[in-house]
Amino acid sequence: MNKSEFLERLNELLNVLPEDERERSVDYYSEMIDDRIEDGEDEETAVAGVGSPEDAAEEIIQNIPLSAAVKRRAKNRRISPWTVVFAVMASPIWLPLLIVVFAVVLSVYISIWAVVISFAAAAAGIAAGAAGGAGTAVIMFAANEFKDGLFMFGCALMLAGITVFAFFGVKQLIRWVVRLTGWTARKTKLAIVRKW
């Protein structure tokens, strides 16, 4: 990719932003590429060095406060009084729909966490089983029931082993869900900024 292709693509990706903001970003990357070239890199290397236009655009959009983006968009859009009247009149329709959408999204999210919590509870249950088994084994040894005690002790060891695996599994699961949350939040913000 050469410099003008990069800048053109970046400009295109930032078309959701106001003109001055867009120009500023493009100027910045143009200067960066020029300075790299001046430092001895060839054009291709310099362009590759500043990263992809997609990443650049994402970073720029992500760092615009959501409130500012919404406010600016709202200001630029002409809303006629009739639109407002219509929006108010139609609120018995769209308000419940909005609430439903929100409730569905929320319940899906809660369900995901519920699955994680149930796995964690299962892991805790197995751990409790291991502890209980070990305790019972000690009591059986004390009561001279050696064979049964040994069997109990083996069961406790096995459960303890499963607990270790379950613990790492649950930890990884939580990490995935947290990452998914962050990813969804970022994408939602992008969608809002773009749509306005």
Partner: peptide
């Protein structure tokens, strides 16, 4: 200027063109 700031800082902290832009702003 931008490029020089990145060159001056990169021995001390990880920084790139795309991260510097929002910081300056």
């Amino acid at each position: 200027y931008g490029y020089k700031i990145i060159k001056d800082l990169s021995p001390h902290i990880e920084i790139s063109e795309s991260t510097l832009y929002p910081i300056l702003k």
